[in-house]
C-alpha cells in the first residue's frame, strides 16, 4: 500500500523531491504539497483504492503524511 501511495504522491503531489526519499511520517505540506495538489491526491487515492473518504477525513491532517494517508485507507478498508 505504501508503495502505491508513494506513486500517487509522485504523480499528483507536484513535489520537488521524489516520494521515495520522503519518510512515512514526514510532513508532506512542509515538502511543498499545496492545498490544491492535496485535493488531486485525495481524488487519485479514491480512484486507485476504490474508496470514498467521508467528510470527517476531508481535511488537511488526513493527507499530511504517507503514514496518515495509509491510516485513513486502512480504516476505510476495514470498515468495508
Amino acid at each position: 500500500m505504501l508503495d502505491t501511495i508513494r506513486r500517487l504522491v509522485d504523480e499528483q503531489g507536484r513535489l520537488a523531491v521524489a516520494a521515495e526519499a520522503i519518510g512515512d511520517n514526514a510532513d508532506l505540506y512542509a515538502t511543498g504539497l499545496t492545498s490544491f495538489a492535496a485535493v488531486q491526491l485525495m481524488l487519485a487515492l479514491e480512484e486507485t483504492f476504490d474508496v470514498e473518504f467521508p467528510d470527517r477525513m476531508l481535511n488537511r491532517r488526513s493527507f499530511s503524511s504517507i503514514a496518515s494517508i495509509a491510516g485513513c485507507l486502512h480504516e476505510l478498508k476495514e470498515a468495508a
Binding site: S35, F36, M42, L43, D55, L58, N59, R60, R61
Partner: peptide
C-alpha cells in the same frame, strides 16, 4: 463539492 470540503477545512486549519 467534496474537493471543496477539503479546501475549506485546510483554509480554516491554517
Amino acid at each position: 463539492g467534496r474537493a471543496g470540503r477539503m479546501m475549506a477545512s485546510s483554509q480554516r486549519e491554517q
